[in-house]
Amino acid sequence: MNTPKPATELDVAFTVNGERVERRVPVRQNLADFLRDTLGLTGTHVGCEHGVCGACTLRCNGVIVRACLMLAVQADGADIVTIEGAATGNYDGAIVADLQREFHQRNALQCGFCTPAMLLTAAELVAARPQASREEIRAHLSGNYCRCTGYQSIVDAVESVCRSRSGT
């Protein structure tokens, strides 16, 4: 039996915001820490580190995931988009830009810690179901904590972008 030795470091290659990244990473490092500490992309925030607060949410192969519950080595071959890419690139027809404008208009942030992840989470809903009701918006955002706003203004902002994009 030809058994590979368990690794403590591995070479990985993946795409981050459209740019190819090749690095050797410790296997125990999570994706959020790799993006922040190695690539300097600090828009992916680290809050609870066990999947509850949602602050580390990013897009992996087109869907949102928790970067604290994914190892950097598991991103090998993946297409990763962080808030830095989503806010400036053309990944989703400027949904994130629309959301940013509405968040600003409606005071849907105060300290801003939850905001990058909140935007990426909301963008997934706006792209998939712009006809979503307020209740569906709340359900979709339920995995993202905000300790400043009380959520009302965030739901208002997301609803406003949904309405303008679904033409209702």
């Binding site: 058994t3 590979p4 690794a7 403590t8 296997v27 125990r28 999570n30 820490d33 080595v73």
Partner: peptide, 25 residues
């Protein structure tokens, strides 16, 4: 917190996965 140190294996098929779990239990 951060995860404690561990090492990592990525089997290519179920048969290899069973080989690995047989070794490390």
């Amino acid at each position: 917190m951060k995860a404690p140190a561990f090492s990592y294996l990525r089997p290519e098929n179920i048969s290899q996965a069973i080989d690995f779990i047989d070794i490390y239990g």
